[in-house]
Simulated assay, not measured.
Amino acid sequence: MRSAYSIVSLIAALLAFAAGTSRAYPVAAVLGAVAVGCAVWGLVLVSRKTHSGRGLAIWGLIIGGFMLLAGLGGVTSAAPEAATAAPATATTATASPATRAWTLPAQNPLPPAAPIVVQAKKFGDEYEANQIAAEHKWAGQFVQFTAPVGNINSSGVSFTDVTSSFSFTQISCRVKDETQLIPLAKGKPATVRGVVGEDQLMGVISINDCEVVG
């Protein structure tokens, strides 16, 4: 009989991966911990030869452990950013108009009027082959691509079929106007454009300030 712990471990690991790609790091860490715990019990039962499901437990342990570490890392990195952002906001609010003119942070330059049109799979293959080189090449670039929709949520839209061979690499687009997501459907192609983020986490290529254009 297949171990229920092994099955729950893999399910929790996959849910943790989905939470991580949506940047819900605390949820990813909790689900990763659940996956690891269930995987350990599943392997114990398999070792006693009372249940099967060794493969499911191993995958749950690998993915769950990875997502546990990645989730904890995401929570840790997000905390300093929130802490440093608060004083800047308070300073701007209390300063006089003349002072604010000198203390406002420099704004990022506007992207060029025409985006760089890229093929989604070639774009994804570059990150799959060498993430560091791809980040140096594409970070801050205004790009446009078309790909089948993988997932739609309040944060935006993600695309999973973005490499020539099977991988967990995906493109995650944070839209400026979520009403643009209403016409989209999972599995249907969509054309978006936005600014490529500087750092990629857990195989997710981030595109910021996205617009759905087709």
Rank of each mutant, 00 (worst) to 15 (best):
F66E: 05
V75A: 07
P26L: 01
A29M: 10
F66D: 00
L45E: 15
S52Y: 08
V75P: 09
L61G: 03
G53W: 01
G64I: 07
V36K: 02
G32N: 15
A28L: 09
A79I: 13
A78C: 10
A79S: 05
A57S: 09
C38S: 14
I62M: 13
P26Q: 04
A28T: 07
C38V: 11
L43S: 04
S47V: 08
G74H: 01
A78S: 11
G71W: 01
G60K: 05
G37K: 06
P80A: 10
T76W: 09
L31Q: 03
L69T: 13
G32H: 05
A35P: 05
G55H: 03
G55E: 08
A28W: 07
A29R: 03
P80N: 09
L43F: 05
M67K: 01
W59C: 14
E81R: 13
L45S: 10
R54M: 13
K49Q: 12
S47T: 15
G73T: 06
L69K: 09
R48D: 15
G53M: 02
L61P: 03
A28P: 00
V27A: 12
P26T: 03
G32M: 03
L72R: 04
V44D: 01
R54I: 10
W59Y: 09
G37S: 14
V30N: 09
A82N: 04
A78R: 10
L31I: 07
L72V: 10
S77C: 03
G65Q: 06
L69M: 08
L72E: 12
P80D: 05
W41S: 11
G32A: 06
R48T: 14
G64K: 08
V75N: 01
A33T: 15
Y25S: 07
I62S: 11
M67I: 12
V36D: 07
V34K: 06
L43P: 00
F66S: 15
G65A: 11
L45D: 13
V34I: 13
M67V: 15
G55Q: 04
G42P: 04
L43I: 05
A39H: 05
H51T: 14
K49D: 13
G53T: 05
G71M: 05
V34P: 06
S77E: 02
A39G: 07
A35Q: 04
P80I: 06
L68E: 08
V46K: 00
W41N: 12
L68Q: 07
E81C: 07
G71Y: 01
G53K: 00
G73D: 02
I58V: 14
S47A: 15
A28H: 02
I62F: 12
L72K: 07
R48M: 15
E81K: 14
V27F: 10
S52P: 01
A39I: 03
L56I: 05
V36G: 12
A57L: 00
V30R: 07
G42W: 04
A70Y: 02
S47C: 08
F66W: 11
P26I: 11
G55W: 08
A79K: 09
V34F: 11
G71L: 03
A78W: 00
G37D: 07
T50P: 14
G65M: 13
L56T: 02
I58F: 08
L61I: 12
L43E: 00
G65N: 10
G32E: 06
F66Q: 13
G64R: 08
L69D: 02
